[in-house]
Design a protein around this nucleic acid. Structure first.
Length: 508
DNA sequence: TTCCGACAGTGGGGTCGCAAT
DNA sequence: ATTGCGACCCCACTATCGGAA
């Protein structure tokens, strides 16, 4: 199959806003693709690469050759070139990569170049990713979507699952099973503003567990072999020896456990997320890092214990299996209750101990991997500040033509100026985007067509955020985590905004 | 007919490793 | 030694479609 077929399908998918139409476009293409190229087609059309990552981003894609007039590139040929690009490493590899990218793009038409550029930068923006592709595969292979979804959960790769479905239908999909050593798509959580609201979503009685501000891990053990995966199924076994040892210390030898690793201080309180994140990401000198920043693991779910797959069991039974397989010290603290006050108190205690919040879990739901079902609902405390809009950036995609991303500052009474604390684009409705674009253009100091439009500090906006963290990027040495807009404060003047000193007081 | 679950899009801060400068 | 880039850790929120109620 030719790449142009995919580029055309992608354009058709983007042009139709209806999900069913997108599914039809994708499904029709999948009916035409040969078995040898099915994985490539599914990967590309759901915004992925079979290689996963190849070391090419937006910067490497500048200065591309002129397009061709005639489309001749096959999927196999493109895949080969991407494979060669990925395999390059070491000195001179960037020049080599550029040359191979030139060879690839030089063989593509304008439409193919655009498609490949968006694919490689992770910005396909056709309104269809895995969710729609699952339905398209189901249509093309004439199988129930639930079967595709189940196989994806267990295999973790939609191209592999889709190719199997097209090849062998339901029979081949049913052959996928939980394999120790092969990462499962992790179950995700919705969020709620309060524990009481979360209990309503999950249904009482429910389990309330500490939400630790660390890195999600899935640990597999088969005999004396252990493998550890992240949320995106990256293998980080070598970076977390403490976890490997903890799992090897368990009596069971056939395990798949779900949990969180976190760096704790000697007093047991959590380190800031930055510390845990840096430790987990470090590949060099792990042995000495474990002495200074030791990691602790807390498990909260069991997907397999001693030969038994538990995914389809209700939470309650999986947790019982977890407690039987893992000593209490390695299990995330948990309270089962139907009482909202009791649950709120448990939440308050977790937060006082420095943790991120809680996750409220329905006792009845199976491990619904890869979907944000109401089975798990997270609750975190929310801070707010009144800050001043210092500048704004023009949006992209559906926000093109509107000033979208706000630069936020706290007031500094000593200088009469403002200290930038970060940016946000979250929480804005279309209506608010339109309104603020108008306002900002009136306040613009300097050219309004620059990417960043600097404003006269006049507008106060109420911002919600999860916490203040250390920053090397911003002048105050601090930045907001997960900042989002709640509302504008026309009743407040900029000098009435929260001060930099007040924000500093929130630093851990 | 209305409601609501699931999805995709739109970007945020931080860290590490690696290649180039 | 420093810088830029790519990849990946954490992520919140709104708009939309289409099936459920």
């Amino acid at each position: 199959m030719l790449l142009i077929d995919l580029a055309r399908t992608s354009a058709a998918v983007a042009a139709d806003s209806a999900r069913l139409a997108k599914i039809r476009h994708l499904g029709e293409l999948l009916c035409r693709v040969g078995a040898d190229e099915a994985e490539i087609a599914i990967a590309y059309l759901s915004g992925e690469l079979p290689q996963r990552q190849i070391g090419v981003g937006w910067r490497s894609l500048s200065d591309l050759p002129e397009p061709r007039q005639v489309a001749t590139a096959t999927l196999t040929r493109v895949d080969e070139l991407l494979e060669r690009i990925k395999s390059r490493s070491g000195a001179g590899s960037q020049a080599a990569r550029r040359e191979l990218l030139g060879e690839l793009f030089g063989a593509l038409t304008r439409q193919e170049q655009s498609f490949m550029h968006r694919l490689l930068t992770g910005e396909l923006r056709q309104g269809a990713l895995n969710g729609v592709m699952i339905e398209a595969i189901a249509m093309a292979a004439n199988v129930p979507a639930a079967e595709v979804r189940r196989a994806l959960t267990l295999r973790g790769s939609l191209p592999a699952v889709g190719a199997a479905a097209l090849r062998g239908g339901v029979a081949e999909l049913k052959a996928f099973h939980l394999e120790v050593g092969r990462a499962v798509a992790p179950m995700l959580a919705q969020s709620a503003p309060s524990v009481t609201a979360a209990l309503e979503k999950a249904g009482a009685p429910a389990a309330v567990e500490w939400k630790l501000d660390g890195v999600r891990v899935q640990a597999h053990r088969s005999g004396d072999r252990v493998a550890v995966f992240t949320r995106t199924l990256d293998d980080i076994t070598a970076q977390v020896p403490e976890l490997v040892e903890a799992v090897l210390g368990l009596p069971g030898t056939d395990l798949v456990l779900d949990g969180e690793v976190i760096a704790l201080r000697p007093d047991g309180r959590p380190e800031p997320f930055q510390v845990t994140s840096g430790r987990v990401a470090s590949r060099t000198d792990v042995a000495s890092l474990r002495a200074t920043v030791p990691l602790t693991v807390f498990f909260f779910d069991a997907l397999r214990v001693d030969g038994a797959d538990l995914l389809d069991l209700p939470d309650e039974e999986r947790h019982a299996a977890l407690e039987a397989a893992v000593p209490a010290g390695l299990v995330t603290p948990r309270l089962v209750t139907a009482d909202a006050d009791e649950a709120e108190a448990f939440f308050g205690d977790a937060v006082r101990r420095g943790h991120e919040g809680v996750v409220v879990k329905s006792l009845r739901t199976p491990y619904a991997a890869g979907r944000r079902g109401a089975g798990w609902v997270k609750v975190k405390p929310r801070h707010t500040l009144d800050l001043v809009v210092l500048a704004a950036e023009w949006g992209s995609g559906r926000r093109r033509g509107r000033l979208s991303n706000l630069h936020l500052g706290a007031y500094d009474p000593e200088t009469g100026g403002f200290v930038m604390l970060g940016k946000t684009f979250k929480g804005l409705t279309d209506e608010l985007l339109t309104w603020q674009t108008e306002q900002f253009l009136r306040l613009a100091e300097g050219p309004a067509d620059d990417y960043v439009v600097t404003l006269r500090p006049a507008l106060v906006v109420e911002i919600a955020f999860d916490g203040v963290q250390r920053s090397s990027r911003y002048p105050g040495g601090m930045a907001l985590r997960f900042a989002r807009v709640l509302r504008y404060r026309p009743d407040k003047r900029p000098e009435e905004a929260d001060t930099a000193a007040a924000v500093r007081a929130l630093m851990p």
